[in-house]
């Protein structure tokens, strides 16, 4: 299997970035949920930072089409690659990299901060969406099941919820309270804010970490979730909100890409 994948990446390197590459994600108006919106925005930002053209395709079945079962994924030439990490590797194989100029220590630091974002911000998003009874019954389950006919909508949404709750239990988040979740978000924001300082980007020039942090912070800032005050927590760190504003104006001229 390994040899097949290395062969595939060699083949990928041989071909330039295809013009008709597409990014598949869930429809934003009535279906996508906060965590998926954040991941999709991160990948979209990363590709814009690399200056790689991509056509965004909205598909309600994008999750089952994805090889890893997660959105977003890109379809470039004969290759289908899902999620930010593998996409960054795939793009590097094509000769585009944002973190090439970093030294080893900075690379390690970048990876650590990316882990921090995935382990705290992404997990907090999933907790709010699926472990909070109020949010999951009012927002997450109806939106998740919206493309399916009755009774599949309920069955699939419940299935998804069971799966996420099991994962939350495994990482010890299932029993957390709202205040503890607020605390977690606050701690990671403080860590990010301290690392960022008053710079424009985390490591001088845009990297995949900037794309990931922007994806999550922007989505959290623009989403109003009943019972939670995440946007207020983030606004306590003005350098982070400025960071989001800066990337938004720099890479997205019309900032209407993401809601919920």
């Amino acid at each position: 299997m390994l040899s097949v994948e290395s062969l595939a990446s060699q083949m990928a390197a041989a071909e330039p970035w295809p013009e008709n590459a597409s990014l598949y994600q869930l429809p934003t108006d009535d279906q996508i949920l906060l965590s998926d919106a954040a991941s999709c925005l991160a990948v979209q930002t990363f590709l814009k930072m690399c200056n790689l053209p991509v056509l965004v395709v909205f598909r309600s079945s994008a999750e089952s089409m994805s090889p890893s079962g997660k959105v977003p994924f890109i379809h470039a030439g004969n290759h289908v690659v899902s999620e930010l990490g593998p996409i960054v590797q795939f793009v590097r194989a094509k000769g585009h990299s944002l973190s090439e100029s970093l030294n080893e220590q900075e690379k390690a630091e970048m990876k650590a901060y990316m882990e921090l974002v995935n382990n705290s911000l992404l997990t907090a998003e999933l907790y709010i969406l699926w472990c909070d009874k109020n949010v999951s019954s009012l927002i997450s389950r109806p939106r998740y099941g919206s493309p399916f006919p009755f009774p599949l909508d309920t069955i699939l949404a419940r299935q998804k919820q069971r799966e996420i709750v099991r994962r939350m239990k495994a990482v010890g988040w299932a029993e957390k309270t709202r205040e503890q979740v607020h605390d977690e978000v606050d701690q990671s924001c403080r860590a990010l804010s301290q690392r960022l300082g008053n710079h424009k980007y985390f490591f001088g020039s845009p990297t995949e970490l900037d794309a990931l942090v922007f994806g999550h912070l922007y989505s959290l800032l623009t989403t109003d979730i009943p019972g939670y005050s995440i946007p207020e927590i983030i606004r306590n760190y003005p350098n982070l909100t400025n960071f989001c504003k800066n990337i938004d104006t720099h890479f997205f001229l019309q900032s209407n890409t993401s809601k919920v």
Partner: peptide, 16 residues
């Protein structure tokens, strides 16, 4: 498999 052609991939999903 990961190497499934894209039209087959597009058909993936749930239907009733």
């Amino acid at each position: 498999s990961r190497t499934a052609s894209f039209p087959v991939r597009e058909e993936s999903g749930h239907s009733l």
